[in-house]
């Protein structure tokens, strides 16, 4: 038996850490390297090519027929659309999630547990299946589209395959991630503090702004991060509800590994996605530190 506690701990911890590092850490590093290589003819990667930043240059510029570099906005548009859709989804989730979290915090113990289970269940059900359900609801010959078209003053409206459909699907997919951190904050909140503020003559608005909001802010930030980041890398929702018209970063990454078969370019797009995510996370962390300082 191992009697040295440090050695015993290391031997218990190492297998899990090693599996994650080998199957997630190492691949990410390899991906960073491949993003600098050229496209291969048979396997997708030209391993012998010299490393260069050509794949990153391609995101913004493309070579014209005569060799001059001209601006190519198609990838920039997709990147911007991903960021905007993720931001819009975050805002929708906050607007819907805040009242739910507040309401849950005021329920009885059993009511809270039941709501917690109801909010968590969608998270564990298949994302693909849940987005497919929206495909059924919003489709052209469905009753929702028919009733919208019956009252629409602008003539027939297409509900599917546009940015709105993707935003609805994304909010639907990630809303629980907003509700749960908010609820955690409100559940722990001592509501007598608000009463104290009123007793000391604060107006309702002032009490909410000066007492409840500072306490809710960490929950709002955590929830926003938990919604924004998976939205940025969404694939299933835009693939189903965007119908190939509303592309997001996830879709163009997948295309490089599918039809286009340009793996190094796909790797560089993934690196960009990862970098965008890290920037957002760092910004949030800095914001939090400045608030507490």
């Amino acid at each position: 038996m191992m009697h040295n506690p440090t050695l015993r701990r290391a031997s218990l911890l190492t297998p899990a850490i090693a599996v994650i590092l080998l199957l997630i850490g190492v691949p990410l590093c390899l991906m960073g390297w491949i993003s600098l290589l050229g496209k291969g003819t048979s396997s997708g990667v030209d391993w012998a090519s010299l490393p260069s930043v050509a794949n990153y240059v391609r995101l913004v510029w493309e070579e014209d027929f005569d060799g001059t570099m001209i601006l190519n906005s198609s990838y920039l548009v997709i990147f911007l659309r991903s960021v905007v859709l993720a931001a819009v989804t975050t805002i929708f989730s906050l607007l819907l999630g805040l009242p739910v979290a507040l309401w849950m915090a005021g329920l009885s113990r059993t009511g809270r547990d039941a709501m917690l289970l109801l909010i968590t269940i969608p998270f564990w059900t298949n994302l693909l299946v849940r987005n497919y359900a929206w495909l059924i609801i919003l489709r052209e010959d469905g009753w929702v589209a028919k009733s919208v078209n019956a009252i629409s003053p602008f003539g027939p409206v297409q509900l599917l395959y546009n940015d709105t459909a993707v935003a609805i699907g994304l909010t639907y997919s990630f809303l629980p991630f907003m509700i749960l951190p908010l609820y955690t904050v409100f559940e722990k909140f001592d509501w007598r503090l608000l009463e104290a503020a009123y007793d000391l003559g604060a107006t309702r608005k002032r009490a909410l702004r000066r007492v409840l909001l500072p306490i809710a802010t960490p929950g709002i930030m955590a929830g926003s991060l938990l919604v924004f980041i998976p939205c940025l890398g969404a694939f299933v929702t835009p693939a189903l509800l965007g119908g190939g018209k509303t592309l997001m970063l996830g879709n163009i990454i997948q295309m490089q590994f599918g039809a286009s078969r340009n793996w190094p370019f796909g790797a560089s797009l993934s690196v960009i996605l990862l970098a965008a995510m890290l920037i957002v996370m760092t910004a949030m962390a800095l914001l939090r530190n400045r608030r507490t300082a």
């Binding site: 997630i24 190492v26 990454i253």
Partner: peptide, 26 residues
Amino acid sequence: AETVLNMPLILPEIVVAVATLLLFVA
């Protein structure tokens, strides 16, 4: 150690999936 253990929760799945594909092919 806990950060490493929770890494799969934070990283976008499509990026990890693509990276693993690259490793396995390599």
